[in-house]
Design a protein around this nucleic acid. Structure first.
Lengths: 208, 208
DNA sequence: GTCTATAGCGGGATAGAC
DNA sequence: GTCTATCCCGCTATAGAC
């Protein structure tokens, strides 16, 4: 199998993902990325036409990595509670690996709404696995397993409770007056806390 | 009372707050702000030494406006449940007025951790009203009104559930495949949804 | 206090040699 | 494919006239 081709392109993409999403250098220039990758800056223009196209590729790849596992989990035939827990485990693993990804996406989307010159980052079509999961949420609500509401609330609650404590960590540490080790401890407790909120009748259930 | 002095300085600050936090032009330049304010660009350097100092002033003023009411609510002697609801009402009002403030703060704090050259945006000391509220949360947990955990979880849950749906609105609309009017409807339902999560025993309680 | 003019840099992109 | 050299632009900041 061919291993020789497009090593540099892949190197640049992987390096950019690391710089942006893992190190959190959201304003990194093409020079910064080239330096981090150990390649000449003009190669970025050679492989990708512009910085904007590099960004689109990087976001696209991150998105693919992000949904590859979770989509499989969401469309599996696991029971709802187990499916939700596996989704959370997978999601929080990725949050740990790329803690700045969501912040990056936030500002990138905001900017795109205003600029109109950049290339699209996401597919236009709504992802089916999420649509299916939303239906299952509705079923659970009908069955009385979880409180009844618009199913999107459950989804919004789930991701809000996982993501926000990660992206606002520096601010929360100041406001709540706790240090890094204490916040780490809090983060480690999040899964059980969130499950307790989302499945109020099963607060004391075992996780495995 | 003096109304004549420092009108321009105030105008610049208010305009900058609007551009950054209300319009969401996170990358706005000093020229953009000057244009929006209808003043000459160099006046920004005259009143504030640099763009960074303007940012610090703008964030500081936004922070003051943000905590002025909420601090009074948090240190009041209202019962816990009513205090929490008033805090939420006040908080969500401000989120509606400055929907991009939290996103701006997020990236600003991330950048500050890496740059080290910018002036401080926040006071170093932890805010007392939050400390007092955390104690009250602990009391409620002892009394069994709300599920027991580290009180900071309750606080993190509360703000996560309010803020995240606002700042990630564009992405969530795509993922959940819903339009603006539907999302508005969801946002309007959030308060009751959040109360139902945080006060599991009182899901059906009236709000007023 | 407000303006014009200008300095200066940093970043993105391209041409062209190898 | 990879490099050097260069162009060009946008942005911040400052000097200096009024």
């Amino acid at each position: 199998m061919p291993v020789k081709d497009c090593q540099t392109e892949k190197l640049i993409i992987d390096t950019a993902m690391n710089v942006f999403f893992a190190e959190g250098r959201l304003y990194a220039t093409t020079q910064d990325i080239a330096d981090a990758a150990g390649v000449n800056r003009t190669l970025i223009n050679y492989y990708f036409r512009s910085k904007d196209e590099l960004l689109a590729k990087v976001i696209q790849k991150a998105h693919e990595q992000f949904v590859s596992n979770s989509d499989a989990i969401l469309i599996s035939d696991l029971p709802f509670r187990e499916k939700t827990e596996q989704f959370m485990d997978d999601f929080m693993d990725k949050l740990r690996r790329f803690p700045y990804l969501e912040s990056f996406l936030t500002v990138d989307i905001i900017q795109q709404r205003l600029s109109k010159n950049s290339v699209d980052r996401f597919p236009k079509e709504p992802p089916q696995p999420i649509q299916q999961y939303l239906k299952e949420i509705g079923n659970e609500m009908e069955a009385g397993t979880i409180p009844k509401s618009n199913p999107v609330h459950f989804m919004i609650n789930l991701v809000s409770l996982m993501i926000y404590p990660i992206i606002m960590r520096p601010l929360q540490m100041r406001l709540l007056n706790i240090n890094d080790t204490e916040y780490d401890q809090v983060v480690n407790e999040r899964k059980q806390i969130i499950l307790g909120l989302l499945f109020p009748e099963t607060i004391n259930a075992n996780t495995k």
